[in-house]
């Protein structure tokens, strides 16, 4: 029978009746690494991840006044995803960049999937393949497999039907499967 996995990152559920609203510094200090991990998995680049983390913390500062205690990491993931998608949309409005100045986007050249796996470079290879996914697939896969959200949570966050989430996760993982062959 299927051994269902727990979420990879436990989304901390806080009893709304008891938990105080954290300060901005507490969020940055205690959850900065989590935000950075999500940002890096979404963007695939350290410089873009740093920009995204800054944007997220900026939005956190604005939003803490209205934050209702609950799943803090779920809330942070929502902010990170929205900030990422805002940036994607902003980039798409800009003129196309004809110069290939994004070496980290492609799967490492000269390294076959088999070599990568044999060389135990799977995390780097998988990250490169993840970055090769279309943004909507990447967001769905990251929220499911990095953040640990369920399909309904992802659907609510992204604003699409659950069936669409299911399809995106499947197509994303299937493309990763092909990349790893």
């Amino acid at each position: 029978m299927l051994a269902l996995a727990p979420p990879p990152v436990a989304l901390d559920v806080i009893d709304p009746g008891d938990a105080p609203v954290p300060t901005w510094e507490e969020v940055a200090r205690d959850h900065g690494r989590f935000i950075y991990t999500v940002a890096y998995r979404l963007t695939g680049r350290h410089d873009e991840a740093q920009d995204l983390v800054q944007e997220v913390l900026l939005r956190v500062r604005r939003g803490l006044e209205t934050y209702q205690p609950g799943s803090l990491r779920g809330w942070l993931s929502r902010i990170a995803t929205n900030a990422f998608l805002d940036e994607v949309r902003r980039q798409k409005r800009r003129p196309a960049d004809p110069l290939p100045d994004d070496a980290e986007r492609v799967i490492p050249g000269g390294l076959s999937a088999s070599d990568a796996l044999d060389a135990a470079d799977l995390p780097d290879y998988l990250q490169a393949a993840l970055r090769g996914l279309a943004e909507e697939f990447r967001v769905a896969v990251v929220l499911c497999d990095v953040v640990g959200m369920g399909y309904q949570e992802i659907a609510d966050l992204v604003g699409v039907p659950v069936g669409t989430v299911r399809s995106r996760i499947h197509r994303g993982r299937s493309q990763l499967r092909e990349a790893l062959r």
Binding site: R33, R41, A49, L57, V146, R173
Partner: peptide, 24 residues
């Protein structure tokens, strides 16, 4: 598909560059 899922879920946390969070 299960192997891909396992590999994704086994990806480690990513360390921000030294001093990045402290600077923020």
């Amino acid at each position: 598909l299960g192997a891909v899922r396992a590999a994704l879920r086994a990806l480690p946390d990513v360390e921000p560059p030294a001093g990045f969070l402290d600077g923020l």
